[in-house]
Design a protein around this nucleic acid. Structure first.
Lengths: 195, 195
DNA sequence: CCCACACTGTACCATGTGGTACACTTACCA
DNA sequence: TGGTAAGTGTACCACATGGTACAGTGTGGG
């Protein structure tokens, strides 16, 4: 069957994700996707078994990229602003939009999204919490504070991304982010900060 | 034609929205929806003209409810926590989930969502900004601060709602929200309204 | 050589899709 | 009373859907 991984399948998956990045995924038919990436719906079925199989593969790939981003993101607290600048970069818009599309999809319990939500929230909060606890030994941050702070930071980031995706207002959302770092008494933007 | 409003149409729309609240909307067929709310796809076409017509009607209704919530929300800052408690109430989960589903849908430029994003962001930021400017005359809040603060408040709320919808962790998200209000030094402070 | 194998094109299937035609009922109003 | 219009049921349409059957293609190894 073609269910196992193979070079052809990988190529198809990559192309399908690329297409999903700017066209979405949840309400597209196999034929639409296939036509867009230069293959036939027959091939998608062959390699992924079914439409749901393709969905799962795409979701997993998005999860993987998200994790990868987590792994390479500078996690030091002082780098918060640099991290935001990275996230706010236009080249990441498509990925974030797809992320939110799948997020909403998963909230409705659609097939192929098991575990996505846990990973999407806990996967980010957890390492930040640990980091904060380590960094906060001197500063007197206890575990509840660390958890709450991690949660709040994630919320600010995701909330501002939703704003950014809707409005495209990089300057405005960045100003709001700087405001947050100021509230935390963190170093804000290097030199392109506010004022 | 049935395109104009009527009692029957209103009943159907209400039922359709109710159904969308816990089953979603964007990837459901007319027949699925119709069967679930005890009518026929024939009737939905009759009253709403087309599937897209129904979609538009549902989106508008969700927008309307969102605006209604905005209108009745207490905007004074001292009430921030009470407002969050209201949002975090399980009875609103379905509405928020549907909101994010449509939000994601709109981010992809799907038909029937024109104006949704503007309303979703600017519709909330704007009144809060005005409120902050008014309240901040004494406290020295300038317009940029007000805009940023409104934006940040909205982001915190939406981000924590995403968290809450995914995890169901009312206590944790509420702790994070409290942390935010503490950072703002709310009890003594200026007004901060968002939702 | 031949066979196994990964892969792909063509053609097809049953079912589901949005949408329509038409007959029919009810109800209100002239 | 009759007519007009909203509303509804039944049956249907052309088409798109996910999925399958089958007959290939090429390629590498024995």
């Amino acid at each position: 069957m073609g269910v196992a991984s193979s070079q052809a399948k990988d190529r198809l998956l990559h192309a399908a994700v690329e297409h999903a990045l700017d066209r979405g995924i949840v309400d597209l038919s196999l034929r639409e996707i296939a036509a867009a990436i230069g293959t036939s719906h027959r091939m998608l079925i062959y390699h992924f078994g079914s439409r749901e199989g393709l969905l799962v593969a795409v979701v997993r790939e998005v999860e993987r990229r998200e994790r990868e981003r987590l792994g390479t993101a500078p996690l030091s607290v002082a780098d918060a602003r640099r991290r935001w600048d990275h996230l706010a970069d236009p080249s990441l818009r498509a990925q974030e939009r797809l992320f939110f599309e799948i997020y909403a999809h998963a909230l409705l319990g659609r097939p192929g999204t098991k575990g996505f939500l846990d990973e999407a929230v806990e996967g980010w909060i957890s390492p930040v919490r640990v980091l904060l606890i380590d960094a906060g030994i001197d500063a007197g941050i206890d575990e509840d504070d660390a958890e709450g702070l991690a949660r709040l930071g994630l919320a600010v980031t995701r909330g501002l991304l939703l704003d950014l995706l809707a409005t495209g207002d990089t300057a405005g959302t960045t100003r709001a982010f700087d405001l947050f770092t100021q509230l935390l008494d963190l170093p804000s933007g290097h030199d392109l900060g506010h004022e």
